[in-house]
Nucleic acid binder design. Sequence first.
DNA 1: CCGTTGGTGGAATGTTTATTCTATTTCGCC
DNA 2: GGCGAAATAGAATAAACATTCCACCAACGG
Lengths: 284, 284
Amino acid sequence: MDDADNLDEDVVDAPRDFPSLRTLIAARAARLPRRLGQVAEFALANPDDIAFGTAASVAQRSGVQPSTLVRFSQALGYQGFSDLQEVFRARLRDRVPSYDERLKQLRQHGGASKAGLMLEGFAEAAERSVAEFRHKADHAALDKAIDLLTRAETIYLIGLRRSFPVTAYMAYAMGKLGIRNILVDGIAGLGAEQLGFISDRDAVVAISFTPYASETVALAHTASGRKARLVSITDSVFSPIAPIADVWLEVVEANFEGFRSMAATMALAMTLAVAVAERRGERG
Amino acid sequence: MDDADNLDEDVVDAPRDFPSLRTLIAARAARLPRRLGQVAEFALANPDDIAFGTAASVAQRSGVQPSTLVRFSQALGYQGFSDLQEVFRARLRDRVPSYDERLKQLRQHGGASKAGLMLEGFAEAAERSVAEFRHKADHAALDKAIDLLTRAETIYLIGLRRSFPVTAYMAYAMGKLGIRNILVDGIAGLGAEQLGFISDRDAVVAISFTPYASETVALAHTASGRKARLVSITDSVFSPIAPIADVWLEVVEANFEGFRSMAATMALAMTLAVAVAERRGERG
DNA sequence: CCGTTGGTGGAATGTTTATTCTATTTCGCC
DNA sequence: GGCGAAATAGAATAAACATTCCACCAACGG
């Protein structure tokens, strides 16, 4: 009898759908004991690992014992880890939507709100940009660019206006990877001064799209004049920084409502940063 | 010896990605013996069952013996059923196959350059992020966020570290669209001062991903304390800026080699900027 | 300062799992 | 129609698995 009571209490607050479960975990995470809290955090951050992993593998990845996972699951009202895991799996079951499902969803959202349509537009621009770049990318040029940047003492990153987010992310990534870099942000009109100490042992990544910001072009010329290697990323051969570059990488971004996606350029930027880090690691 | 030869031959034509595998199965299905063909058909029709099930359950559902599944897998060049199953599972994961895994594949398959592989990884991360966000985006919350931002006198954009590129692009877009905004970049440690004049007529867009930069959290709290509206964009309910937000938008970015794609967040950011501009244009 | 409670790690357990093996059947070919 | 090779079913096996159990530890209240 008291068994039944216990069971009732337990089963009642064990969600069978993922969103509820996630809310439950988030709500209780703070009050949970140390190890269980650790599991909670891991579960929310890596739901896929829970879905497909074994108790042992999840335990290792989240830094606890397998038994802790069982206790965690039971604390949430499940019978055991496998029971909880089932909810994480169900979430993946109805993903990877077919065309039918996607259409149905659009109709459900009331013919899609205006904002929803706009989001679709930007999302599609991003997907198209990435997909196209993926197929058309010039791997030889990419290799050459990586080679050249690997040898550089300091890498200067030049990108203004819409290109600035890309160089900013590159600077962030390079910082984390231990690659010496200077983000030329043109703040306070000091762009030229930031290139003050550039030399032939350094390299520049200059990113510019139509209409090419004159400042970027000027900075690239300055760097080029100081004999620094120049990698330029642009959207066409007509870019004024293409001809003076040692390596030229072309990225054509799709746009929506007049705003270009930066998705492909971002992927390229990340590739440069991580590939350089890897090459330097090999040599070191 | 012939064992080794067999292994070589086998391993070579075992695809590690789902689309290739599907093509391979479809191509060979017709020439396969009866039971194996039966499995092939089932696998193409019910990929999710293969991904989630056990050998025994799949065997029962497809009307064959478990051992047949093993033979089927080996006929395609895999070590066993588990090996084949891994490909079916990878398709459903957020995690993009790591560089190391791709390298292994490269050695077996031959093909793209190393840099090309890396680019593929980042491209895939971007595509997955966008595709999933497209599917899962909370349109109601999006509408609410736009509404709230439309009414704001000044929009403050808070995002540091990896989120900074996104807020930077938002600032650029809003500038072009004539939306008054202030990019809180924390430069020279002046983050708090930049929020100096924020009031209840203003709104904040705060973007933060794990591990949540403490400065972003602090700034969001400051803004919230001054009664400004708060739209937060994060990757989990766990984020400290999710509970205090008026609207919370979730974006889960896939990552490759430890660097998150920002593609979905970028698309969302653009949507917010352009939608607000459009709404204000309607009213004006 | 000691006893109690709640939490944890790690070994032990019994079950489920994929895989291998072998007897039997099916198929293609002469 | 019968021979040889290939394919299959089903039992056998060994590894992997989730779960349970128990000894230990830390925090807390008396």
